[in-house]
């Protein structure tokens, strides 16, 4: 019994560390690739680690209230919490963590937990741009959640389970990745992922070129550091979730890195050549082709 608890704790720590390191390198890689596309040299790929060390070393002088202080903790709950319910590798190859409870609909809700908590923290700063960013982010979420949920419903109907590990198992049993078994669901989910990853043209929340304030400027030191780390972990969570749901998971870490990074490149490169949408344009985008593919995906899962 005691050994179980230590194994569980070890699993939690190793998984979190893996997600954190991978996510940080992906973010570094994205900066490097973007720089090269824009004909710059760009920072080294480990730059994010340096940034994080610097941030952790800094003191925070001021705050606007306790909700602001707790905001990044909510983000972490969402990132680390969802990581616990997603199988990192195929069955039996990695720590199981709590994948037995890894229900996909539960996960959908757990994944918004963090942004809403952070939104409260951002709201307390009193910075108007924080609230503007939140309204944009929530509006965009109403957009991309619809095709994303349609893709998930199609998968549930196809495999008769809501457990992520079971969906992964079912793909192995049939020998076909679900991105080929139901390509429409994959397309809908992939288009939704553009909004989820918030790269251009869907970077309307941070809007880096026009809003030089908001939560990023109100939080410093370890608060900003925690936000950055949770971003890294969360990016990994989303990528692994996509790989598990659509690409048959991975048998070892190398395969996982190849699959996730390949997936990561899609929204990243799409964003490099696109300007930013306005919020309502983003929502309309998601209610166009992605939703159509989602409807086809559900019908395909039902009738085929």
């Amino acid at each position: 019994m005691m050994g179980d608890i230590w194994m569980t704790l070890l699993g939690v720590l190793v998984t979190t560390l893996l997600a954190f390191v991978t996510g940080m390198f992906y973010m570094g890689a994205s900066r490097k690739i973007t720089a090269r596309v824009q004909n710059r040299v760009g920072p080294p790929i480990y730059q994010n680690f340096l940034d994080l060390i610097k941030l952790q070393a800094k003191d925070t002088a001021i705050h606007h209230g306790w909700m602001q202080l707790l905001g990044p903790a909510f983000l972490m709950v969402s990132a680390v919490g969802s990581l616990m319910f997603i199988p990192v590798l195929n069955k039996g190859l990695f720590f199981e963590n709590f994948t037995a409870d890894g229900d996909i609909i539960f996960l959908l809700y757990l994944m918004v937990f963090g942004s809403l908590g952070m939104a409260l923290g951002a709201g307390q700063t009193g910075n108007p741009n924080s609230a503007i960013g939140v309204t944009r982010g929530l509006t965009q979420m109403v957009g991309f959640e619809i095709p994303w949920v349609m893709a998930i419903v199609a998968l549930i109907l196809q495999y008769h389970t809501t457990n992520i590990a079971e969906i992964l198992e079912a793909q192995h049993r049939s020998g076909v990745w679900s991105m080929f078994a139901n390509p429409y669901a994959f397309i809908a989910a992939l288009l939704a992922a553009f909004g989820m990853f918030r790269y251009s043209p869907f970077d309307i929340v941070g809007a880096p070129a026009e809003l030089a304030s908001g939560p990023v400027s109100e939080n410093g030191g370890k608060f900003l550091g925690t936000m950055m780390s949770s971003h890294a972990v969360f990016a990994f969570v989303k990528l692994v979730l996509y790989v598990d749901l659509f690409m048959g998971g991975a048998d070892n870490l190398v395969e996982l890195v190849i699959k996730t990074f390949g997936l990561y490149l899609i929204p990243l490169t799409y964003g490099m050549v696109n300007p930013r949408y306005r919020t309502e344009q983003a929502v309309r985008y998601f209610y166009g082709w992605p939703t159509l593919f989602g409807i086809i995906a559900i019908l395909y899962a039902v009738f085929y």
């Binding site: 925070t60 001021i62 705050h63 606007h64 209230g65 700063t125 009193g126 304030s213 400027s217």
Partner: peptide
Amino acid sequence: TRYVTTKDIANS
């Protein structure tokens, strides 16, 4: 950290 009012914000 020290509490400051919400008027004391970074605003470009």
